[in-house]
Nucleic acid binder design. Structure first.
Lengths: 123, 123
DNA sequence: TCGCGTTATGCAGTAACGTCATATCGAAAA
DNA sequence: TTTTCGATATGACGTTACTGCATAACGCGA
């Protein structure tokens, strides 16, 4: 994710962690994590996508794919109504976010721990 | 990388680990790691790319970028000569491969360790 | 009942990237 | 000296993913 350390002309380690279906479709990556987080905060997919700087079209498509692959809903959606509609996270979505977050933290610290050793090896 | 475990309709964790320049260019990812490994084995970038199933065009471009970003050569290249030319890894390339490999193994085991916990959380 | 803003979805345009085709280079072999 | 053959190098073409735009469906509040 973020460079553990860096200076001009330096190199650093990055990684991407995501949940995937056996068929290969991405289910939850960093962007999707952020979108879900923002839905929780803002109550709307459209607002979440705008704040995340991701097109609504993509955010919506990703969410739909994720739910299809998982076989359960991540959000309860309502169109129409006061404010035009809204989206809310389901309990399972919250659990998923928690689990993803915890895993991500572990990976971050694993990278962090290994970084100095890595750097000294390639000197 | 590989699914730690999986059954029909199951989901699994994937990750991608790479070395990057601050400017964002990828320097060493799994494909490039494989290419370098195969150069070491086969003595030629073209042969390595063919065996890896990666287009020569891409393998060459990636290698060039990596060397530019790192500021040092990963391969000694010779065009012309017996066999038309050849490529060989530099010492620094070998060190880099070793370091990447060690790091990758650590990440693999971190994922493996966290996988069951992750799965039980999202149940 | 009408309007507003969201969910929902298709479609065209575009940008990023990868493959394919092809030209040139040059040291060693003939 | 000439030939050889893979390496370097580049332009044209294709794929694919994402964006942007248009539009429908919806339902609460005014």
């Amino acid at each position: 994710m973020k460079p553990p350390r860096s200076s001009k002309n330096d190199v650093f380690l990055r990684y991407k962690l995501w949940l995937s279906a056996v068929s290969g479709e991405g289910i939850l990556d960093e962007d999707q994590y952020l979108i879900l987080k923002l839905i929780d905060e803002l109550g709307s997919l459209r607002a979440a996508a705008a704040k995340a700087g991701i097109s609504y079209r993509k955010a919506w498509g990703d969410l739909k794919t994720a739910e299809e692959m998982l076989g359960y809903e991540l959000t309860s959606k309502q169109r129409g109504g006061s404010g035009g509609g809204k989206s809310e996270l389901t309990d399972r979505a919250n659990k998923l976010l928690e689990a993803y977050d915890a895993l991500h933290k572990k990976m971050d610290s694993a990278i962090e721990d290994a970084y100095d050793e890595f750097k000294s090896k390639i000197k």
